[in-house]
Design a protein around this nucleic acid. Structure first.
Lengths: 241, 241
DNA sequence: CGTACGGTTGACGAGTGTCAAGGGTAGTGG
DNA sequence: CCACTACCCTTGACACTCGTCAACCGTACG
């Protein structure tokens, strides 16, 4: 379909939003062009370097964001420093927790990230005015819950080899959702330490499993971060779902 | 309709609902007495023995339920038989997944359970009519997401000893939410196998950790299932949050 | 009385974590 | 242009937690 032509007719859509994915697959799709106008007035685009903190103890409840690009990790930390990544978010996910102070969770940019940020108050007013918006939030929350539960199986019941294979598969599908072929090629958005914190392993074990996959020719690795998967099915077999 | 007249006299709350917790803390609190009337006409109370399947491949999407009493476990199973419990639900939680075919998740009665069941269609119509109902569902889904993420930290980063202590603490608080003292006493709603599947351990390891806690006098156990915790703080220290 | 089920305990080994050393690359300052 | 440092990653040797296998106990039930 010709989205551009539709935008010309609905000429009220803010310039900043016209090419934004959040309007199609994200929560903004629930809003009228009027509401988009209102929201875009108080919205601001930001680019954040890898490692920047998006939601933490401080910023926690002051603003919400849509992720425009990049990968955000949701991190929980124990008192003694052990940490666990409890979720990864990709564009055009919505970031921020309505109606709720988020207990001990921080959101950090895993890669360089760009976001569209709005103040909490504006969004919350729109939520109460627009049932469809709340519906989208419910849909996204249900999606995140499914993902969290899938990952619980990985954390609780899979071996290190299966965990790493499963992780690579996860990134492969999110890096290029359109890909229909059996092969894939992508850059890992996470360091080995992040991967370890996501999988409940140590960096050493992650590293060893990666070399094992390399030696078995299931993957090919360049510059530590760039991964080529000649046969996704072979990788899926090792992930044991 | 003369719904209005019924709304004025709130004595029209269905008999079946008057003493029901779901009307206070659960999703039914979002409904008018009129809607409760409609819903209660197609609702039915059921008692299910431990082990019964509430949501599975078959029943999956045909009905929803409120849990009136007992404990329900949400189970995911891998092809080779390994399984992981990804959530426990207590009264008055809502059971069933709106708008979504639940991938490979089964809900089973962990104890004897009583539920209030309604057909999918009735609930879904009410959801679209009543934004407040959708709001409650969002709240519950957010709560479940928080719990799932907390548990991911346990699964990924805690030792067997911490896992077992954390589990006992979880049950202690859910068994008696009103308890303000620092001691507790309760029956475990789960078998050792269920506990193992919840914690990502084996029954043997669970058993050993329980004995260890017993020998350290952190807990006292009678008949395998009945647990006394003289000092919840001592237990909390071992859970390592 | 036999059987089934759930739980405990012990001996042993595999899978991961821990500790330590070293390689590769990018950025910085001389 | 070359150290120099910092960071990320890999690899090896070893230790330890937890899983596996097996035997046994107690209780409920036919």
């Amino acid at each position: 379909m010709d989205a551009r032509r539709k935008d010309i007719h609905n000429s009220d859509i803010p310039v900043i939003c016209t090419a934004c994915e959040a309007r199609h697959r994200g929560v903004c799709g629930a809003l009228s062009s009027d509401q988009l106008q209102t929201l875009s007035k108080s919205a601001s685009r930001k680019k954040l370097g890898s490692g920047a903190e998006l939601v933490g103890e401080s910023l926690a409840t002051s603003s919400y964001s849509n992720i425009i690009g990049g990968v955000v990790k949701l991190v929980k930390m124990l008192a003694d420093g052990r940490q666990q990544i409890v979720g990864l978010q990709f564009a055009p996910d919505f970031l921020g927790r309505p109606f709720r102070a988020e207990s001990s969770l921080t959101a950090e940019a895993a890669t360089d990230v760009s976001v569209c940020t709005f103040p909490k108050t504006v969004i919350e007013r729109m939520i109460s005015d627009t049932p469809e918006l709340e519906h989208r939030l419910l849909e996204q929350t249900l999606k995140e819950l499914d993902e969290a539960r899938d990952w619980m199986v990985t954390l609780g019941r899979k071996t290190a080899a299966e965990k790493v294979a499963g992780f690579l598969l996860l990134i492969a599908t999110n890096a290029d959702p359109e890909n229909e072929s059996d092969s894939a090629e992508f850059d890992l958005p996470l360091t080995r330490l992040d991967i370890a914190d996501f999988l409940g392993l140590t960096i050493e074990t992650v590293s060893r499993q990666m070399t094992k996959l390399r030696k078995e020719a299931v993957i090919e690795v360049r510059n530590n971060r760039h991964v080529i998967v000649p046969d996704l099915n072979a990788l899926a077999d090792m992930a044991g779902n």
